[in-house]
Design a protein around this nucleic acid. Sequence first.
DNA 1: GTGTTTAGAGGACGGTTGACATCTAATTAG
DNA 2: CTAATTAGATGTCAACCGTCCTCTAAACAC
Lengths: 188, 188
Amino acid sequence: MRVSQQEMEKSHRRILHGAARLVRERGIENTSVNDVMGDAGMKNGGFYRHFESKEALIDASLQAAFDQVIEYVEAHLNKHGPEGLLAGYRSYYLSPGHVEHPGTGCPVAALAGDVGRGPDSLKASFGAGLKRMVETLSKAMPGSAREKKERAMREFASLVGAVVIARASDPETARAVLAACRRVPKEG
Amino acid sequence: MRVSQQEMEKSHRRILHGAARLVRERGIENTSVNDVMGDAGMKNGGFYRHFESKEALIDASLQAAFDQVIEYVEAHLNKHGPEGLLAGYRSYYLSPGHVEHPGTGCPVAALAGDVGRGPDSLKASFGAGLKRMVETLSKAMPGSAREKKERAMREFASLVGAVVIARASDPETARAVLAACRRVPKEG
DNA sequence: GTGTTTAGAGGACGGTTGACATCTAATTAG
DNA sequence: CTAATTAGATGTCAACCGTCCTCTAAACAC
């Protein structure tokens, strides 16, 4: 049955944000259009009124996920300042909460592996989100513009690696890796 | 048709090592039993004479992949000593060759994302391989036993993160991330 | 109020998957 | 040399996938 424009926009957002979460929880290939529509409280039939294809949905939901986490980092930066962000974000990123809830966490830690096997178009849009993320983090780094960016990349890479490893390990190994990575205050 | 015992053992190895490569190239869910058997020059029918299930194959091929890379690291260590390993392995790990050929590279960078969404049994066996890897790397680290291990974990996490990010990005972003991560000589 | 438009339901489609049952040809034990 | 064994080929099975078609009831424009 038809639905008012407002309802349709709400449906669209439900589909998009639900997909952004499901995709981070289950991976790109393991998230079906059916699952996404079911999560949004609908049947699969109406999907193609909202998105041209699954690929288009994935693209849009990835950007939505990046928007969400970048907004979080910006807010943190504005509230606690550069050095507050550095320590605070690292602490959040390596926390059990983040490790155990990929659906609301960093899309890079959750999906980089999948994207790496995807088409170049997907890598391009993922790379764009990644660039935005690194630029945001670099605001909290010391040094020249170039140094800021390189420090942000190194910091981000080590956080992503730690969480990816922790999620793929038994609980004991995961704890050990997170603890070791939490204990790195300064960089050469 | 039946085949001699030697031929069967060769078949087994072909299936296993082919799977270890294919799985790193395509991911766990995107590698079908058909693909693996085809890669080994056979049809799917005989697969269950060699492995109990796809899960058993994945488990075995993961361990085979860990065996392979750990052997490589050990050889490097014996040939170039601790500090030679540190610089050499980092340089190899962040090289375009490794980034572009996941099939013969580190199983952690290639599959941690997939394993993180897999069953606990898979995480346990992956964690065991990971532990072996870290222990091998820790031989090249300075400090107490605990420090060695923690340094190895941090080093490994940042390498994995860098490669995972590089593989998921457009070529330009990938180069920038790898360059930034290559430029980290000492640790606090 | 009437007629047009359309969001979503429901179902069908061809394709692929992991798993397995059956058959056959060749090995291997006696 | 014969008979039992078995690796691999062939084909089937249900479950799932993304996509698209049709239908209908509700929201619109007039």
